[in-house]
Design a protein around this nucleic acid. Structure first.
Length: 737
DNA sequence: CCGCGACCTG
DNA sequence: CAGGTCGCGG
């Protein structure tokens, strides 16, 4: 330090100050470092984005799985391998399919309205086969013919499916962008988001359009509801689509299956002896017939249930004929009589088994995905990213799927889809919002936390590929989400305060858990950036109890809802350890009564929050910020009044429709849903205004600390905050009537 | 040293 | 609104 000597020369006067400052600065520098680093890595770490990716990937994965299963199936059938399957499963499949087909025929006429929905939803069973045979003559051929072709078809099928899906999603976006609902509340947020939200991808222009929409100051509840409905409809459409894809594939299999049987039956009639080769030739013939154009193929009109039944009957027949069910693999090439029948049986059973597994897998997948979807509907609205299948293939296993799915649940399913909640997802919070709930927790304890509570997924991806980023298939370099991180970090903000428990029997519908989830999200983000800088390789320590931070992390990582509710000490009615947007709202309303609340007062009025130093200071900071705004307004209007020629304080009065009051109300009671702004607040505001006015008139404002006198006056004007504010649920009570 | 509040900044 | 700085008083 070159300045070291001169530092020593400083006067005694400043020494004490310097000591203080020095200490503070040490801390401050560290904090600044964090902040900068955070900013630096913010864009790199984008867990939300990865969620988005994952969500889409899941669907893709499901498809991939499907086709893989089918491929496997075909291969297996081709090589006459093992595997026996009891029938019940097949029955379930046929039932499922039957039900679904009925539904497709009869319900949801509204779907037809959407042009894009016709891509899949309205395709009827007959069409499936005729279409496919039209598109590719090989489609209806047996796997014995050419597995390669079948595989190709599968891939193409997937492609089409994906394309259709993309089209649908884009359609939704378009729909959303034409609806005023996108311009929800949170005007500043939107404004701030818009510039950075520009999608990096050409194909997502629709998004830009959406974000450039003029802001809407007010939105009606009906808009919210209709948007929600729209989402639901889309959800259903997608589900339907999934099922129909399955049906399609099933039908193909079914055709193939029957072709085999048809040919074998006829051949058996002739000589009862069938080699694979002869069978192949038979199949070639079938293909030839097919390509000629056999649109009214009987097989194609069989419904899956009949298909299975017939298969069953055939097998029974065989067993009777053979008098002994053969189980061994029919690999032997020996040309013994009836060699085909066991093979056919195996084939049938293999088919059934595979169908069964595939079906249940897909159904599980779809259900899972959709069950975790409601609260995460919005992100889906963004155009799906073209995620290379390889991204999943890297890890390949189901394990990934589960992990990601659980994480989805963690972030999505926790929240019960209140129409408002879901809708509020539209809001695109900015990065500063995101930190509002727990910044102090993180900041103040960053040093000991890093030692005690290493973030499971918090390491910087580039330094240390974290399990999280690996699992989600997201890495710093590979991640290319069109939206910035904070976009989905706050999916659960509620425009009207805590949602009412509209989902009985679900604890997690409570506002606490709602906020909690969001906090967890933001916290994870913050932690990530922190630890990235501080302890990129910190070993795993047992979670500390410090502010429950580690707990939050565990919760966010563990992904299992039930576990979460068990681990979490504050699920249900317990206290939560962070401040939520609803707390902020409440604090703002309290400001109408008290400008200078004591920390004790805050504790009693925020009884649902587990207080600690950080929470306290954050609350105090909030009020400090409120005051700041308040005084700025006062000064502004006082000066304005002076400029307008007002000479006497008597002329200054504050009413409920004066500009100043509106500004204040807009700030502390944005939606104006709190209708009982106390008269006293108007009086205090008026006194404040007059104080400012007088001081300015008197020229006191030349004194740098001229406002202090005013503060002194105002701090004595606090009034009692109504008891109702002590209730954790006061927001509903206050805002609902 | 510490906590708090004002102030400034982004 | 939060982070940071600064000054003051205990």
């Amino acid at each position: 330090m070159p300045d070291h000597d001169s530092t020593a020369l400083l006067s005694r006067q400043t020494k004490r100050r310097r000591v203080d400052i020095g200490v503070k600065r040490t801390v401050g520098t560290a904090s600044a470092f964090f902040a900068k680093a955070r900013a630096t890595f913010f864009s790199a770490m984008n867990p939300q984005g990865s969620e988005q990716d994952v969500e889409y990937s899941v669907v893709q994965h499901a498809d991939g799985e499907k086709s893989n299963v089918l491929r496997k199936l075909l291969k297996r059938a081709n090589s006459y391998e093992d595997a026996m399957m009891p029938f019940p499963g097949a029955t379930i499949i046929s039932q499922l399919l039957k039900n679904n087909m009925n539904k497709n025929g009869g319900t949801e006429p509204s779907f037809q309205a959407s042009g894009l929905s016709s891509t899949g939803s309205e395709v009827h069973q007959e069409d499936v086969c005729s279409n496919s045979s039209r598109d590719s003559p090989q489609e209806c051929l047996s796997p014995f013919g050419r597995p390669a072709m079948s595989q190709f078809d599968m891939d193409r099928l997937c492609d089409e499916h994906l394309r259709a899906k993309r089209a649908r999603v884009e359609n939704i976006i378009r729909g959303m962008s034409h609806s005023p609902s996108v311009a929800l509340r949170g005007n500043e947020n939107e404004r701030e988001m818009a510039p950075q939200s520009v999608s990096p991808r050409e194909s997502y222009r629709e998004n830009k359009r959406k974000q450039k929409l003029p802001q809407q100051q007010q939105q009606s509840f009906q808009q919210l509801v209709s948007a929600r409905k729209e989402q639901k409809r889309e959800e259903r459409r997608q589900l339907k689509q999934q099922l129909e894809d399955m049906q399609k594939q099933l039908r193909q299999l079914q055709e193939k299956f029957y072709q085999i049987y048809d040919s074998t039956d006829s051949e058996n009639d002739e000589d009862g002896n069938l080699s694979e080769d002869s069978m192949r030739s038979e199949i070639m013939d079938a293909r030839a017939r097919d390509s000629v154009g056999r649109s009214d193929n009987e097989m194609c009109e069989l419904d899956p249930g009949q298909f299975i039944d017939r298969a069953r009957a055939l097998i029974r027949e065989q067993e009777i004929a053979e008098n002994k069910p053969k189980r061994e693999g029919p690999k032997e090439k020996e040309h013994r009589p009836n060699s085909f029948h066991p093979e056919g049986k195996h084939l049938a059973e293999t088919l059934k088994q595979e169908l069964n597994t595939a079906m249940s897998q897909v159904v599980d997948t779809v259900v899972k995905v959709f069950s975790s979807k409601p609260s995460r509907q919005l992100p889906q609205v963004f155009p799906p990213l073209q995620i290379p299948q390889a991204r999943f293939a890297v890890n390949g296993e189901n394990h990934n799927f589960h992990t990601t799915n659980q994480r989805l649940q963690c972030f999505g399913d926790v929240i019960i889809p209140n129409p408002l909640d879901t809708f509020s997802n539209v809001q695109m919070p900015n990065s500063t919002d995101q930190t509002e709930a727990l910044p102090l927790v993180v900041r103040k304890n960053s040093s000991d936390q890093s030692a005690s509570a290493p973030p499971p997924g918090g390491h910087h991806a580039s330094l240390h590929q974290s399990p999280l980023s690996t699992t989600t298939g997201f890495t710093t370099s590979s991640f290319r989400h069109p939206f910035p991180l904070p976009l989905m970090a706050y999916p659960f903000q509620n425009p009207l305060g805590a949602p009412s428990a509209s989902f009985p029997g679900k604890d997690r519908a409570s506002p606490e858990s709602l906020d909690l989830t969001r906090e967890t999200t933001s916290l994870r983000t913050k932690m990530s950036s922190h630890h990235m800088n501080h302890h990129p390789c910190s070993p795993a320590h047992p979670p500390s109890t410090a502010e429950g931070l580690s707990l939050s992390l565990i919760k966010s990582e563990c992904g299992d809802l039930q576990d979460m509710s068990e681990i979490s000490p504050y699920s249900g009615s317990a206290m939560q350890e962070g401040l939520s947007p609803n707390h902020l709202k409440k604090a703002k309303l309290m400001f109408f009564y008290t400008r200078y609340p004591s920390s004790n007062m805050l504790k009693t009025y925020f009884s649902d929050v587990k207080f600690n130093r950080c929470i306290t200071s954050q609350l105090i900071k909030w009020f400090s910020n409120f005051r700041e705004f308040y005084y700025i307004q006062m000064e502004k209007y006082a000066r304005q009044a002076i400029n307008d020629g007002v000479t006497s304080t008597e002329e200054l009065s504050i009413t409920r429709d004066c500009e100043l009051y509106r500004a204040l109300n807009m700030h502390y009671n944005k939606a104006n849903d709190f209708e009982q702004v106390p008269e006293r607040f108007l009086e205090v505001a008026q006194i404040t205004l007059r104080e400012f006015f007088n001081a300015i008139i008197a020229g006191k404002d030349v004194d740098p600390s001229w406002k202090k006198a005013i503060y002194k006056v105002i701090c004595k004007l606090d009034s009692e905050v109504p008891e109702i504010f002590k209730s954790p649920n006061c927001l509903q009570e206050l805002l609902h009537e």
